[in-house]
């Protein structure tokens, strides 16, 4: 298996470099994401205050030298909270989608490639999962496992799995009938190898694009789950939670909602740009000569 992965990924990274260099707009996404990630990583260093520290005298302040982005209703520094919130929001968003993406893609690819009863079984189970609303899924997971960041990730991953199973299955069904898959069988390759080396790169583009979009959605789901108390409990800052808290006092102090909202937007934007770049890397048919 290690052979499979190194031989497959090496040329992929070479291409990633090559195409990202040609498609410069995806670099914007990469740079943006790097900035967001470094904000999150460097939170303890760059944040001027403690994220839960309240300044009772300084509620609803606008941006100033003291509070770079102003304060919220408890007088907590918004910049500090956004930077700390980035840690949780980005972690929950990416980890849950990556987890759901891996499990969902494997299930979908397996179902599509094998067909028959296994296909039916897997996809019907996926349909059942898909029919459960995200919030119910969150309630269920938290009721069983208790509220925590990890369980939030599990809940979001569970809602993401069936989407990726579908995304992975559909192209697999058509690709397995292609001549080059027949040629692979004639070369004596095992089903596992055919799936990983020959089917996967063909569907990876779809999966990656979908994944980048779902990271954005996952950040949003995290927000709504946090809000109803199923996610990370307050006062720990998360972007979604901040938007929700600020929303109640929107007219007095729009910044409390808008600034974290802008960061959600930037994250979504960054992942979409990267998703587009990735698609071009993985699918040479979309590249001109």
């Amino acid at each position: 298996m290690s052979n499979v992965s190194t031989r497959f990924w090496n040329p992929l990274f070479a291409r990633l470099w090559f195409v990202f260099n040609r498609n410069r707009i995806s670099w914007i996404g990469v740079v943006l994401l790097l900035i967001l990630v470094s904000l999150a990583v460097l939170a303890p260093v760059i944040s001027p205050y403690n994220p839960v520290e309240q300044h009772v005298m300084d509620q609803f302040r606008g941006p100033s030298a003291k509070y770079w982005l102003g304060t919220d209703e408890y007088g907590r520094d918004l910049f500090t909270r956004i930077v700390w919130g980035a840690r949780i929001s980005l972690t929950v968003g990416t980890v849950s989608v990556i987890l759901g993406m891996i499990i969902g893609s494997i299930l979908g690819m397996y179902a599509g490639y094998k067909g028959g009863v296994r296909d039916e079984f897997i996809m019907r189970v996926m349909d059942v999962f898909m029919s459960i609303p995200t919030l119910l899924m969150g309630l269920f997971v938290v009721a069983v496992l208790g509220p925590s960041t990890m369980n939030l990730i599990i809940a979001i991953a569970l809602t993401v799995v069936p989407r990726f199973a579908r995304i992975a299955r559909a192209p697999t069904v058509s690709i397995k009938e292609r001549d080059y898959i027949e040629a692979c069988r004639a070369m004596g390759f095992s089903d596992l190898r055919i799936m990983l080396v020959h089917v996967l790169p063909n569907i990876l583009g779809d999966i990656m694009v979908m994944g980048s979009l779902w990271v954005a959605t996952a950040v949003r789901i995290e927000a709504s789950l946090s809000f109803i108390g199923l996610g990370v409990p307050p006062p720990t800052p998360t972007w979604g939670g901040m938007v929700r808290e600020g929303f109640e006092k929107m007219l007095d102090s729009p910044g409390a909602s808008i600034y974290p909202g802008i960061f959600i937007l930037l994250t979504v934007f960054a992942f979409n740009l990267i998703g587009d770049g990735l698609r071009d890397v993985i699918d040479p048919r979309l590249r001109e000569s």
Partner: peptide, 16 residues
């Protein structure tokens, strides 16, 4: 080993 009829479709388009 087998050589197929359709060279245009018998190679995986996404692998070198």
């Amino acid at each position: 080993a087998m050589i197929f009829q359709e060279p245009m479709t018998s190679l995986n388009p996404v692998l070198t």
